[in-house]
Design a protein around this nucleic acid. Structure first.
Length: 845
DNA sequence: GTTAACGTGTCG
DNA sequence: CGACACGTTAAC
């Protein structure tokens, strides 16, 4: 549905980085945008940020996710630059698609990285297809808007707006100008706005239908970013070419100028403030004329135009070049387009694995509530959104943008090579603009609303707890406004990003990537040759303003506690009266709905939204096989505090899992089957004393040593008690280890650390032998009395000898010995012991 | 719900 | 082409 559109393709507005100097400074109060602000006594109509506060490195909103895998940027979880790059989200200036380079399916692809804007590039796909951002040549990374325009945040190589006056003076100029206007409008109060609105709307609509200019441009666009924009009919680079598309170009040009001007202001400011700009990677604006699209050099020239010092020195330039070269080389080596193929196959395998999964995650036994369809947890609107997304993608293993329901990106960009039609794009863009109509957005809104609902009280479980430093990310704004130097911004940022790990004390345990990501990361491509025109490829000199590390989404996602106020007991109707059915009755109805349906209900009205969030309706949450676990999903889980959580076969990361587990202290059942050990290892640092069921079936790469790590009590505990008492999961009564590559060593761990185990699933563990059964049932083993169910199906090394051993289990009710090929056919069965007295090994029954 | 401000349309 | 206006989005 439309929901998918919320993903890639659709343009995403960027937001300030909050870290650059511009962001950190306070409003000047003097520029005309400031003067327009209400707080400075203005009418507040312009709604623009202070000229001196124009962010120099606008970032993707933290809600941005990869078009392909649906996950957020994860660059902060790896160390090497290459990895960081391939795991960060990159937004294409041409197709607007946001994707992890590592998720790209294109082989040998080459992308052009925009050094000036964080997470910005011309994706390999577009580049390969010869699409170029109009400004192609300059490589400044201007992003093409839906209508072919260039976003304001794109830097340009235009000659510096020298003509413009510095901020102060400018404001004056503009002021007067605007003044007139304002007067006109202010006097007739409404006339102005009204008139405009009407017109605007109509026109906007029209515009949206307009055929893509970009298309045209693209078609003739000479391609490579280096190529001078001139030739292309499209919006040549900043210099507006007098072509038919002029109007748009002009607009962009215009905007670019504005941009440049703003930047100039900043630069000036900065120069003033800090004598030496460390990041002086720029060449003067005047110099970096986009018009000189000559090869990489030309492009380079433009780069510097970025937010940096107006004055540059040759040495600085040299440094730049060197850096560029260096980066080129590195990236070329990396062949940054992560290996698509391998990824695909991995995913497929995963899917297959899912199919054969024996220990189903489906067996939802926490009966308590009426049966409900699970799948697709949807928490708030958000979850719904993500759920929707994953649902969609799930059926199609290789998450190709094409497959996804996203028209725009797919057409323009999908992995499918020859796609050209940008037609979809435009329409898409429009939709984006009308965002509100998009399901995804709606969902978000819903959630937001709900959150808002519940907020107030205090954002409790927000991940920042844990560290002492994370106090107050919220005050930033006020700080800013009061003029206090928000020096804390940086720290608050970083603290936020570390909070998660800190809280689990696992900060250092660098979270590895799991699932599909691992495949990517693993791809060892290192053929420099891949990148043809290296010079223009992957240029990635350190951004003038170091792009602020994107905080992991989830960390910034607030998880608010349920509202303090009691839930309404009745449903208010428009008429003013209340619906005859009180809350309790409604809840009974809701109990019969699937989680998905509940999410739909949550969008009906606020009251229903709250009711549907009732924990009783969400005792079990099943996210199994959701291709990606998104921050909203995580917070949705936390809010619902399920008793049973199924994360089987998801790509949840270690960090996410840690974050989650540490906030689900009441969790009784956890299923992480099919997840990579690199993620599951998060449990080694978690504490879930209540856990009763742990499903580790088919955890990828899980070994005996891992199990030990998992079950053994924390080191400090051990030393404290001298001897390890119970392990971390000592209260677990049901453990599923199906399909793992474990040996008999494992049995000793179980005996030692899981004394209360009643149900043990060792099916498909091909390496275990009778020794395991012996250990489990030995006189010294507490399990010999506790075990009631033992699954040894498919344990091909188990022999007849285990049968007498099993008899030693006093409480054993069933033993599954099917597919144990060393047993006689007769013995290969599901042995059951209905009542204690009959507990005899029924080899033949 | 509120605030900041981005992105784009419109006017002069 | 610059300035202004404002719907919409992001963050809180």
């Amino acid at each position: 549905m439309s929901g998918s559109k919320a993903l890639g393709g659709a343009r995403r507005r960027r937001t300030r980085c909050r870290r650059c100097q511009a962001c950190m400074r306070t409003e000047c109060g003097e520029c005309h945008f400031c003067k327009d602000m209400k707080k400075f006594g203005g009418p507040g109509r312009m709604k623009q940020s202070c000229l001196l506060r124009q962010c120099t490195a606008p970032v993707l909103p933290h809600t941005a996710v990869c078009f392909s895998c649906g996950e957020a940027g994860k660059e902060d979880t790896v160390d090497t630059e290459e990895e960081k790059f391939s795991l960060s989200l990159m937004e294409c200036t041409i197709c607007n698609e946001i994707i992890h380079p590592s998720c790209l399916k294109m082989g040998k692809a080459e992308g052009i990285i925009n050094d000036e804007i964080p997470n910005c590039w011309e994706c390999p796909k577009c580049h390969k297809e010869g699409k170029t951002s109009k400004d192609g040549g300059d490589g400044s990374g201007k992003r093409r808007m839906d209508n072919g325009e260039v976003g304001r945040w794109k830097l340009t190589d235009d000659p510096p707006p020298t003509k413009k006056k510095p901020p102060s003076s400018l404001e004056d100029g503009g002021r007067q100008d605007g003044h007139k206007r304002k007067k006109e409008k202010e006097l007739p109060q409404d006339s102005g706005p009204k008139k405009k609105m009407k017109g605007a709307h109509e026109k906007r609509l029209k515009k949206k239908q307009k055929p893509n200019v970009s298309e045209t441009a693209e078609s003739n666009g000479p391609n490579s970013s280096t190529g001078g924009g001139q030739g292309s009919g499209g919006g040549s680079n900043s210099t507006q070419s007098p072509t038919s598309t002029a109007s748009q170009d002009q607009r962009s040009h215009h905007r670019e100028k504005l941009e440049r001007f703003k930047r100039m202001c900043q630069l000036l400011e900065r120069v003033r403030e800090s004598s030496s700009s460390s990041s002086s990677s720029s060449e003067s604006d005047s110099e970096s004329d986009s018009d000189s699209p000559s090869g990489s050099e030309g492009r380079r020239g433009s780069e510097p135009s970025s937010p940096v010092p107006v004055t540059y020195s040759n040495s600085a330039r040299e440094r730049n070049r060197e850096r560029d070269r260096e980066r080129d080389r590195r990236l070329a080596e990396l062949g940054f387009s992560a290996s698509e193929d391998s990824e695909g196959s991995v995913k497929e395998e995963e899917e297959e694995a899912v199919e054969e999964q024996v220990v189903g995650d489906k067996p939802r036994r926490r009966g308590e509530g009426p049966p409900r369809g699970r799948k697709g947890l949807t928490t708030d609107g958000n979850d719904e959104e993500s759920g929707e997304r994953s649902r969609k993608s799930t059926p199609l293993p290789p998450p190709s943008p094409l497959s996804s329901t996203q028209p725009p990106p797919s057409s323009g960009h999908g992995p499918s090579p020859g796609s050209e039609g940008f037609s979809g794009k435009r329409s898409n863009g429009s939709e984006t603009r009308n965002g509100r109509t998009r399901a995804g957005v709606r969902d978000r809104e819903t959630q937001e609303k709900e959150n808002a609902n519940n907020s107030s009280g205090g954002s409790v479980a927000n991940h920042r707890h844990g560290t002492g430093k994370g106090n107050k990310g919220n005050k930033i704004r006020s700080n800013k406004q009061t003029g206090s130097q928000p020096t804390s911004r940086n720290s608050s940022n970083s603290s936020a990003s570390t909070a998660t790990t800190t809280s689990n004390g696992g900060g250092g345990a660098g979270s590895n990537f799991s699932g599909g990501m691992s495949a990517l990361a693993a791809s060892p491509r290192s053929q420099p040759s891949r990148m043809a025109p290296r010079s223009q490829m992957m240029k990635r000199s350190p951004p003038a303003v170091p792009s602020p590390p994107r905080p992991v989404q989830m960390e910034r996602h607030l998880v608010r506690p349920p509202p303090a106020c009691p839930e309404p007991h009745c449903l208010p109707l428009d008429s003013g009266s209340s619906h005859v059915m009180p809350r309790d009755v409604w809840l009974r109805v809701f109990q019969h709905l699937s989680q998905r349906e509940l999410c739909v209900c949550m969008r009906v009205c606020r009251t229903w939204s709250r009711w549907c969030c009732d924990k009783r309706l969400w005792t079990q949450i099943d996210l199994s096989r959701q291709r990606s676990i998104t921050p909203p999903m995580l917070s949705g889980i936390i809010r619902r505090q399920p008793v049973s959580l199924n994360l089987g076969y998801t790509n949840i990361s270690k960090k996410q899992l840690m974050w989650l587990i540490n906030r689900l202290q009441g969790l009784l059942e956890l299923n992480v089957s099919g997840c990579p050990w690199s993620s599951v290892s998060a449990l080694c640092q978690a504490a879930c004393p209540c856990l009763r069921l742990l499903d580790l079936s088919r955890v990828e790469d899980m070994k005996d040593s891992h199990l030990r790590e998992l079950l053994a009590p924390p080191a400090d505990t051990r030393t404290a008690n001298g001897e390890s008492r119970g392990g971390r999961f000592q209260n677990v009564t049901e453990l599923r280890l199906a399909g793992l590559d474990l040996t008999d060593v494992m049995s000793r761990l179980l005996v030692r650390y899981l004394p209360h185990l009643t149900k043990l699933d060792l099916s498909q563990c091909g390496n275990i032998t009778d020794q395991t059964i012996h250990t489990l049932t030995s006189p010294m083993s507490p399990l010999k009395d506790s075990l009631t169910h033992l699954n040894l199906a498919g344990c091909v090394k188990v022999t007849e000898q285990c049968l007498p051993l099993l008899r030693r289990c006093a409480s054993l009710q069933s033993a599954d010995l099917r597919s144990c090929t060393l047993l006689t056919p007769d013995a290969c069965q599901l042995l059951s012991f209905p009542c204690p007295d009959d507990r005899v090994l029924l080899k033949n029954s």
